[in-house]
Nucleic acid binder design. Sequence first.
DNA 1: CCGCCATGTTAACGCCGCTAACTTGCCTCA
DNA 2: TGAGGCAAGTTAGCGGCGTTAACATGGCGG
Lengths: 209, 209
Amino acid sequence: MTLQQDQAIATGGRRGYHHGNLRETLLQAAEDLIAESGPDGFTMADACRRAGVSTAAPYRHFEDKNALLEAVCMRGFDALAEATGSAKNRFPMGSIDSIIAGGQAYLAFAQGDPERFRLMFGRKPDIKSRPLVEATGVACFQNLLESVSAFLAGRGRDEANPMPLALRLWSLVHGVSSLAIDGPMEIMAPDKDPAEIIDEAGRAILAAV
Amino acid sequence: MTLQQDQAIATGGRRGYHHGNLRETLLQAAEDLIAESGPDGFTMADACRRAGVSTAAPYRHFEDKNALLEAVCMRGFDALAEATGSAKNRFPMGSIDSIIAGGQAYLAFAQGDPERFRLMFGRKPDIKSRPLVEATGVACFQNLLESVSAFLAGRGRDEANPMPLALRLWSLVHGVSSLAIDGPMEIMAPDKDPAEIIDEAGRAILAAV
DNA sequence: CCGCCATGTTAACGCCGCTAACTTGCCTCA
DNA sequence: TGAGGCAAGTTAGCGGCGTTAACATGGCGG
């Protein structure tokens, strides 16, 4: 890390022939552009213009467009894990409230940056994405598994497999989030707050154990 | 409709300078190509090659690529409404079984042609899609609303608004379907049949009324 | 039977993803 | 301290895409 690079990082601009911090700058530009125009509207050329480099430059840092999208994707999973984790921690571990709060944070994450959410859960970054993205996605799901385990333990079912219940809850929350950001929900019931659906149906699912 | 056109329709091929049935042929080609490569992989040029016409020909029948995708989308909603409708009709109107069967048919539809499902519920056909696609999508949702109304009536709640309960069920079913076809579900629980999740959680939601 | 016009064609534009070949200039090391 | 290697930029160019303008064909109605 040179002085020039330090300055480039600090200012975000370039200081000579070399950019000095292009990888990070491109990631940021990609996140911004995706938030504006969606994963489909995003182009490598736009990101280059925003970063102030030629259209060939990114290929020194990313194998191709897909690789850049994968990186954005993984950052998204980290952010999602953080959001849901901190939401559920505001309530007692294993409590119904903490599980509902985690689900509602998932929804809020989707609503806060719908395009990134679409990127993360759509098919966009092709098969190659698997190995890396899979790992971060799994880490994200662990949050829920832990909460559900604690919930079951609190009901005297220490040995129960948390997976089935966790899948029911995840499906519900993911469905609410998808329908909310992709439009259908607002078309069918414009006056209904999606967070309420998570609350109502989530408690019903938990009550049925 | 001329004799030449009739033959073109029957054979699927062209018989001269004019194709005779290009609109329908393009729609079919688009559906096939989307099923093979997804909405993102689909190109106008591919559809033209498959239909055996020049790349400019489609613009006599569709305003642009988006319009073609919208048409495919609407056909999909018709097919989905038919699939869920006939599934629920195999059980008594308003019964829990009929509602579950409808949801599982929704899932089967998604699994049967994941790419079309993604097209229908993704953001792909842009804002313009609204007026037309909205109508067919709403018609699709009516199925569920009717079932839920009948279910509530059977429980002595003739006057209850079916919307909240329908939204909970739809969210669940849509979430299961999305997670199943986009990969995450298989990664987390490869041995779990998604249809079971609909059955388990669906009954829990219905039991909580 | 003749000319209109719906429906095709060709040619071209600009944008995109990506690569090859070249250039710059920091950093290492004799 | 100076040379030069190598990471990280550049320019130029390829093929493919969506779309349009201008032109061609030929079935059908008057």
